[in-house]
Design a protein around this nucleic acid. Structure first.
Lengths: 239, 239
DNA sequence: TAGGTCATGTGGTCCAACCACATCAACTAC
DNA sequence: GTAGTTGATGTGGTTGGACCACATGACCTA
């Protein structure tokens, strides 16, 4: 029985050691969002590991949306802590869709369930609803392109999700949306009459927002589910 | 004005190039779960990048639950493609909880909503329910430790989530559960009478399972929500 | 034939060097 | 004195090479 004060976690690889050091600093509050990690070379020396291992850990954190790395000098430089849970979930979902172990239909279904819950939970006077209303006005503009309409549509739905006030649900909604973004855009080419569809979507958006503001969460949830499923049905959902 | 034939994707870093190459192989079906990536040195030469960059990409995929790396020779060696979406979501959630930008209360709330949906959606004759029943028997065993009970409890709830047949929901449930695992275990020390609580949990489990099998999804959802919220309330939920 | 030995190929780790970039201080020309 | 230039500094980004531990399988040897 020996005590190895470095590898006491079993076969921990060096980059995992760096990872847990950083996670510890975060948990302990010594490192917070907006803060900076020590420079890679410095951190390597501190932890008695190679710069390579430090970089591997930072790359993982970057992929997880926990840090952002910038070269040069000044405010944009260095490795600073951010908080973008959506990024991590989105790339994870995208990669696993690529392995074809996450059916797109399941993603859509999950989005329906999360967003239904969100609108049912949202308070009628949540500030995010005002943002949503502004977005709706933008979507009513004359001569709006398909791409612009869809971009506003995404933001509208995310605003609804945010209105529920649950950070986890917001992040998951955003990631689901990102992961199937390209997919949803492709579907528009299947639509027989885009103007008619856009007009219908606008009306449904208004109805959803009205239901939330009328404190009728149950109705809002039903409308959202029908809204999303209707779109994919019209455009032809293939898995 | 010069043309950079490598960075035509803007400021794409070399490890991202490797990443997109691999993602492309996955999407195209040339690389599937169970398959092997070329050796790091080989891949580096193929893509005209350094081995370091290849390794950074692989490390990210590893953290995302897409590949597993093993040294030596034989079946366990090399970098092989796996499919563990739960791993990615779980570590992402854990890290962002560390940054204190994802409140534990939101995690619990999300778990309630996902699991309620799952039991409402589950088919009464889903094969996963049989597994769940077996787990319940195990939890009824005499002299079961707290840790063992909780381990079975986790598997029981995951079986319920799986019964809905949505891979995304299953993965998210699993990751939420993993991310707050330590938290839930700590709470047991707050319980005045573990035996009484365990007994109550067992009864509630039975009722949930019975409701699903009775095709009463609405009741099952209500029971699940009460079950989870009741536990955290009794143990004292602090954020 | 049984056993040991070594070559091979894998990922894991480290090092030393160089690059591009952004900032800031010092210097120079006007 | 001011404006512009120049260079030093420190950051992450990338590379090639070296060595290690490990698992296998082929090859010898007793």
């Amino acid at each position: 029985m020996w005590s190895n004060h470095i590898n006491y976690h079993g076969a921990m690889r060096t980059h995992q050691l760096v990872l847990s050091w950083i996670e510890n600093e975060l948990s302990g509050g010594r490192l917070a969002v907006g803060g900076r990690l020590p420079a890679e070379r410095t951190l390597a020396e501190q932890l008695k590991v190679s710069r390579t291992s430090v970089r591997e850990a930072i790359r993982i954190l970057e992929a997880m949306g926990v840090v952002r790395a910038g070269v040069g000098s000044g405010p944009e430089a260095g490795t600073v802590v951010i908080a973008d849970p959506t990024a991590a979930l989105a790339s994870a979902l995208r990669l696993h869709i690529a392995t074809q172990h996450l059916p797109v239909a399941d993603i859509v279904e999950t989005r329906v369930l999360l967003e239904s819950w969100a609108v049912a939970k949202a308070s009628p006077d949540a500030p995010e609803l005002a943002d949503a209303a502004v977005l709706l006005e933008g979507m009513a503009a004359e001569g709006l392109g398909v791409g612009d309409f869809l971009a506003l549509d995404v933001r509208f739905h995310l605003a609804l999700a945010d209105a529920a006030g649950n950070a986890v649900v917001s992040a998951m909604m955003g990631s689901l949306r990102e992961a199937i973004q390209g997919y949803a855009a492709e579907l528009t080419s299947n639509l027989p009459d885009w103007e008619a569809t856009a007009s219908r979507l606008r009306a449904e958006h208004e109805a959803i927002l009205a239901a939330i503001r009328n404190n009728d969460g149950g109705l809002a949830a039903k409308l959202v589910a029908a809204h999303i499923e209707g779109y994919y049905k019209e455009a032809g959902l293939a898995s």
